[in-house]
């Protein structure tokens, strides 16, 4: 076990060393710290991590789906639903269910919900062979609406104080949630690199024919990625309300765009099979820094959206060009 951990760390470090995105990220970090007023405070650095928690967890979810050459647009709504339902179940607010269920119940419930959504999506995509874009476009719409219907659009607040166990603790002033996110990144990257499932996922996304020939169960993997995405999205939503102690109809609104920015910066290919979570983490952090800079400069939300839209196009273009030109430009010889 020790040796394996060492190899993992070693590999990760070599990834970071050999990789462009982290280089770019650090460059950006230094640039902002030096040139932008107000950027280089410790609280801000903590915020860079803190603000990337939810997008980060959703990015893990989206990465798995994209690696399998599918797409999931509904994770934002699954997160929203989980958050809203958690408050609805547990809080004592006027418009809540009044059940005042305990914290652990809500977590299990939303994870179950995420699993269910994953199963349904998987069924539609694998069995009925409906395009995953269309399925998740629809679920994007109706999952959130489902939650809003339950709450009639009211904002719910007042979670029990047990939730503070999740939202309050900090280690070296860094909130617990950040570590939860980093832990999830590490865990899922490990699966991608060191498990049979991970290799099979990569092969499936890269070459469907080869996967069939090698006896890889395409259905099993497709179901799995959607279920993983659903569960991660639910966890993300649960964490959101834990942090904010309540949920409005606009919870997690437009997160899907930010998730794609992070995933694209992390150079996950929408054609499947390419990319890893270390880069996606860099993408999340870079996005976080950019958002902070926007607040410092008080950019209007419209400008922010314009910028993010353009950013998506630029990054997607860079990815497309580099994919064509043989992605080994980015991936060095040592590759696991």
């Amino acid at each position: 076990m020790n040796f394996k951990k060492l190899t993992f760390v070693n590999k990760t470090l070599s990834e970071i060393f050999n990789n462009n995105i982290w280089l770019f990220g650090f460059f950006l970090f230094l640039l902002f710290s030096v040139t932008i007023d107000g950027f280089s405070t410790r609280e801000n650095y903590i915020n860079i991590l803190y603000h990337s928690v939810f997008i980060g967890i959703l990015a893990i979810a989206e990465t798995y789906v994209l690696l399998a050459k599918r797409i999931d647009l509904s994770i934002e709504s699954t997160a929203a639903f989980s958050g809203i339902i958690t408050v609805w179940l547990c809080s004592n607010s006027l418009y809540s269910s009044g059940l005042k269920l305990p914290i652990w119940f809500s977590l299990i419930f939303v994870i179950g919900f995420g699993l269910l959504i994953g199963l349904i999506t998987g069924f539609l995509v694998v069995r009925l062979k409906v395009n995953s874009f269309l399925v998740t476009l629809a679920s994007y719409l109706f999952i959130r609406a489902l939650a809003n219907e339950i709450t009639q659009g009211h904002t719910l607040t007042g979670l029990p104080s047990t939730f503070l166990f999740v939202s309050e603790p900090t280690i070296f002033n860094i909130p617990l949630m950040v570590f939860i996110m980093l832990g999830l990144f590490a865990f899922f990257e490990y699966i991608l690199r060191f498990t049979v499932f991970g290799k099979h996922l990569y092969v499936l996304g890269e070459n469907k024919n080869m996967a069939a020939k090698m006896g890889i169960n395409e259905a099993k993997i497709s179901y799995s990625v959607f279920i993983i995405a659903g569960i991660l999205a639910s966890i993300a939503g649960w964490l959101i309300v834990a942090k904010e102690d309540g949920a409005s109809v606009f919870i997690a609104q437009n997160y899907i765009f930010e998730v794609f920015v992070a995933v694209l910066i992390g150079r996950i290919s929408v054609n499947g099979g390419k990319g890893n979570l270390i880069d996606v983490l860099a993408g999340c952090l870079i996005l976080s820094m950019i958002k902070i800079v926007f607040v410092i400069y008080a950019f209007s939300p419209y400008f922010t959206d314009i910028f993010i839209g353009i950013l998506i196009i630029i990054i997607a273009s860079i990815n497309a060009i580099s994919e064509r030109k043989n992605a080994s430009v980015f991936y060095k010889k040592e590759q696991s």
């Binding site: 007023d37 107000g38 950027f39 405070t41 609280e43 801000n44 903590i46 915020n47 803190y50 603000h51 904002t155 607040t157 007042g158 959101i240 904010e244 102690d245 309540g246 409005s248 606009f250 919870i251 997690a252 609104q253 958002k291 902070i292 607040v295 410092i296 939300p301």
Partner: peptide, 30 residues
Amino acid sequence: RSAEKQIQQIETAISTGVSALVIKAVDNKL
């Protein structure tokens, strides 16, 4: 109109240094 966004903005404002915050709250509970 996003309470979450407002919270994030306030957090960022806090971390990047602000003396005074005038807030027209989106949601006065959250």
